[in-house]
Design a protein around this nucleic acid. Structure first.
Length: 85
DNA sequence: CGTATGACGTGCA
DNA sequence: GTGCACGCCATAC
């Protein structure tokens, strides 16, 4: 089942995001296999505590920050520091 | 196995 | 242009 790979795929995709570039949950979900799994992506990332995954580079399709495990402020700070914003 | 929840997305009023 | 509601998929309990 690809379902089991979905979570892993999401982590892989997010880890592959280069600095200075922001991906939307939709894009990540699409690369993960299902563009409608945007909700699942957020849930997986929220459960994920691996700082190795730059989940702060994953924002909403509207450009909103959405949320962050460590705190939205840190997310914005990191994005600003990388020049993504 | 079934239910409930979620860091979203899109459509309609 | 803004706000509300519904829908979709995956995970966790």
């Amino acid at each position: 089942m690809n379902n089991k790979k979905f979570k892993k795929k999401v982590h892989e995709v997010v880890k592959r995001i280069p600095p200075g570039v922001t991906f939307s949950y939709k894009e990540v979900a699409k690369r993960a296999g299902n563009r409608r799994a945007c909700r699942a992506v957020g849930k997986i990332l929220s459960n994920n505590k691996d700082t190795s995954i730059p989940c702060h580079r994953v924002i909403r399709a509207d450009g909103s920050i959405g949320g962050y495990n460590e705190g939205m402020k840190e997310k914005i700070k990191k994005l600003r520091k990388e020049g993504a914003m």
